[in-house]
Design a binder for these strands. Structure first.
Lengths: 294, 294
DNA sequence: AACCGTTATCGGTATTATCTATTTAACTGA
DNA sequence: TCAGTTAAATAGATAATACCGATAACGGTT
């Protein structure tokens, strides 16, 4: 017994006629006869008494009819709800982000998105780039915003916004406008943990300039951007930090920016997701919003 | 989209595997693939992301799954409820009956039936045999109990119990043990209306004895057995009435029985129903009970 | 690079849904 | 009572599709 049988039955019941039903459903009358016969066999009871020119529903048909209608309705509702799920922008949005985008980009973008689509609820998870990327790979997150790419043919990266890393320090630690890389290795230096996108970017920069962090005078390795910033403010050493994160400290002259070899350290933030996973509709909409809004 | 698709989808979702589902459903894996593809096309969305060795349900699948289970369940319930309708003895029992069976037979039989099957509710409609039979023909009643048969190839009659019609009168009207038909025609006579089974039976009796009610001295035609009985008691005339209806009056000597030509007027009560209508199960059970109990 | 486990695709077969034409049955009206 | 009408059942044929086995393609593992 499937839905098709029930639809045919319902139509026959409604019109009390095989022929009328066949007209409504655009199916030939013998086909209707056949289906009703099959339904009767599968339910092991007669559904209509054939009286010759007319038919009459049996007690079983009376029981079946309302329930059949209900199921037919439910099935239509089901289709609509699935369609709704793939067209409406609502539901949970769990976004992973590394420190800088999670702190200085996402809140604003999430706010403006929620203003347009009030039925979404954000959950923003902040971890370093490596951890976020790993969670995406493990299907623990559907997408993330990170400051470093790892090589993986499973992942799809979309560039979102450019950021600049700047060398900062208190005047006591470094009181000059520029510095060469060679000289920098002698300065007490603060760095992030290995998984950090900021660190990754800086190390790429060093490599490009034939250098490595092993030459540096590392006074501390710290687990977050703000920890590094606080340490730098305290005069513990110099550090390379996203401009976004230190703009305030630069404005208030607590920290000073020092150019390295007169170069800029640029990096991109990326939206990262698995190539093969289809994103729920609210995620797609948010990703679009992100690309426009950054 | 039909139930089969939903069942396959539910199994795939449950195992997160096309192959496991194919094993559970005893269908080949390519068939599963095909059905999921069809379902995806008909819903116009992807339901599982094929990640290579494994699959992951999409947001749409998450929406679909619980609702699909619900509908599958509902459909099974539906089957059970239809089966229940054709096996359980419960519900309304609308029985038509002519005066004598409706008054002297049905109440007792209905009572004993309801004791065995408390979930039935009787509705007993009393009209004369002709009207009851007509209502059966018009599908206004599913069955009736009547004292006269009409010729119709649509109707099915089952004999239930034998009854006897007796000529009764007050001693003032008729003070003798027997009477001949010829003499009876001179006696003031009370009769029922045309549709009455009692009258039909009596006229058949007259015809068999080469007589007709037109020869009779009809003082009144009355619309019910009890009206005729009351009129007879009042001494308005003689009447032919079911023995069941006048037993009390005979016992109390209010009325006296007079034999006609030393003959007995017998008749049967019949269960009447349309040959082509299938009776609901409680009706079938009651009809069986009737035949046993009479 | 070779090997597994999983899904997709292909080509063919079996089933069944559907059609038209016709028959059967019951009611209608002359 | 009998032709005419209407509706459902049946028969015979065809088209759609459900299903299968074999195998390719793909990702992950060794």
């Amino acid at each position: 017994m499937d839905i098709h049988h029930l639809k045919i039955f319902a139509s026959v019941y409604k019109y009390k006629s095989f022929t009328r039903a066949s007209e409504e459903l655009h199916i030939s009358q013998p086909t209707i006869s056949e289906h009703i016969k099959n339904l009767e066999n599968s339910l092991d009871c007669r559904l209509f008494d054939r009286l010759g020119r007319s038919i009459m529903p049996t007690a079983e048909a009376e029981v079946l009819y309302p329930k059949a209608l209900q199921i037919i309705d439910d099935l239509e509702l089901l289709q609509e709800e699935v369609t709704a799920a793939s067209t409406m922008i609502k539901g949970k949005l769990v976004i992973g982000a590394s420190t800088i985008p999670g702190t200085y980009i996402l809140p604003g973008v999430a706010y403006s998105f929620k203003k347009q689509h009030p039925d979404v609820a954000f959950e923003i998870l902040i971890e370093d780039s490596a951890r976020i990327t790993n969670m995406v790979l493990q299907h623990e997150l559907l997408c993330g915003i990170v400051g470093a790419r790892i090589v993986s043919d499973k992942l799809d990266y979309t560039p979102l916004i450019e950021d600049e890393l700047v060398l900062v320090a208190t005047p006591k630690v470094l009181n000059q406008k520029t510095i060469t890389l060679e000289k920098l290795t002698n300065i007490p230096f603060l760095q992030r943990e290995t998984g950090s996108g900021t660190r990754q970017t800086f190390e790429n920069f060093l490599e490009k300039n034939n250098c490595t962090s092993q030459n540096f005078n590392i006074v501390a390795t710290l687990g977050s951007t703000s920890a590094v910033k606080q340490a730098a403010k305290a005069g513990l050493g110099a550090a390379v930090i996203s401009r976004m994160a230190v703009q305030e400290a630069l404005d208030s002259r607590v920290l000073k920016e020092v150019r390295i070899n007169n170069l800029k350290i640029r990096r991109n933030f990326y939206l990262v997701r698995q190539k093969k996973r289809t994103l729920p509709h609210q995620y797609l909409a948010f990703c679009l919003h992100l690309r426009k809004g950054c």
